[in-house]
Design a protein around this nucleic acid. Sequence first.
DNA 1: TTTTGAGTTGTTCGA
DNA 2: GTCGAACAACTCAAA
Length: 480
Amino acid sequence: MPAPTIVWFRQDLRLRDHQALTAAVARGGPVLPVYTWAPEEEGAWPPGAASRWWLHHSLASLDASLQRRGSRLLIRRGPSLATLRDLVRESGAGAVTWSRRYEPASVARDAEIKSALRADGVEAESFESALLVEPWEIRTREGQPYKVFTPFWRALAGGPPPGQPQPAPARVPPPRAWPSSLTLEDLRLLPEIPWDAGFRKAWQPGEDGAHAALESFLDDGVDRYDGARDAMARQGTSRLSPHLHFGEISPREAWALRLDAAGRRANAATDPWLRQIAWREFAHHLLFHYPRTTEHPLRADFERFPFLEDAPGLRAWQRGRTGYPIVDAGMRELWATGWMHNRARMVVASFLVKHLLLPWQDGASWFWDTLVDADLANNTLGWQWVAGSGADAAPYFRIFNPVTQGEKFDASGDYVRRWVPEIARLPDRFLHAPWTAPPIALHEAGVERDRTYPAPIVEHGEARARALAALRTLSERSSR
DNA sequence: TTTTGAGTTGTTCGA
DNA sequence: GTCGAACAACTCAAA
């Protein structure tokens, strides 16, 4: 009987299309699936509260899936290397397998663990899992990583199609005796104050939930995606991001399942939804190649962008009390459900960086703590893109007008009414700009300026001019 | 090497 | 109401 193999789970909480698991099963001996909780190894970015909530439920789901296949999930606390060594010793395991991660802290840690285990005489093997293509496999002709999405996308869509996803193993052979394990509750991932009621209604973490979400989107939403994804009140998006982040479904599965109405594989070059999957891919590749960008702007001149300090402004933004209904609706959706519509993310991010002139890093930190899909690569790319300091950055003049955005993408007002109920009775034409409503309309809607709902904390025209002036300081000084 | 065209998601202003 | 141009200059990627 071959020695046991340890499968070290991290952000790959699934059984399907899982090469590290498949390889472990193929070795023929018992398999020990383990999760090690080691937030201190995530550098400056240990999982936030919303992520921990998701993680708890996803681990529970993974354990249940393993139990249906004759196995279970071991849970331990880090440090990861010491924990894996303990398990090797306790079980007599001859090998450890895992799925690669690409964030700066993980890359360094995993390399260390791999060489330490090998030095111990234990086989250690990592597998691809989270991406369609490894970050070092796509390069420009110059051999550099892509910094512009469109050519990256052409290279990805024009390259060989991603491999076929593998099925889950029918059975995961257990060891004769299980080593000790913590319980999931021991990790204390769930909030002590029960703020998660909205989360439970909105989400089903775990591999089954991921496939349910994908299938309902493929049945129902994907063909309308291009037109519908911008409407904030509708479920026009796939809502797959947290499932992808935790690896409950692999991008290869998403890619492979994407069939057009006639049942053919969708065309990678033209499918708008596959393009979004490619953005995720792009973000991960960029973070791998430019690990400093979690804190530092990719474009160095933005180091001296004249951001302000404004604690009350930041707090108003976080709490959804800026006086701009579409901004406040987004921020409150985030707080209540751990998620925000993508269009709303752009609007609130632009508002923080351009209207309030607050550092994008402040926004990134808040999103990190509050999003269930908080993902270092996506978060970094998104914020730098909005700030104008990143790859393929928004042109300097792209400053969202929160009123126009609201009128365009929440024309019915359903989104604002849902998340900012105190102004719900305002007529549509004032809903996105309550300060323009005449006193009688406010009165009839039961809105009292500054008491029911705040007046705008900055005036759009002034804020826009101020942001443009701040951006101009960069080009002035650099051209000298 | 040099040149050329392009670059996710916008807004405003004036005709 | 609709439309097109202007809004910095720069960097990237490929020819």
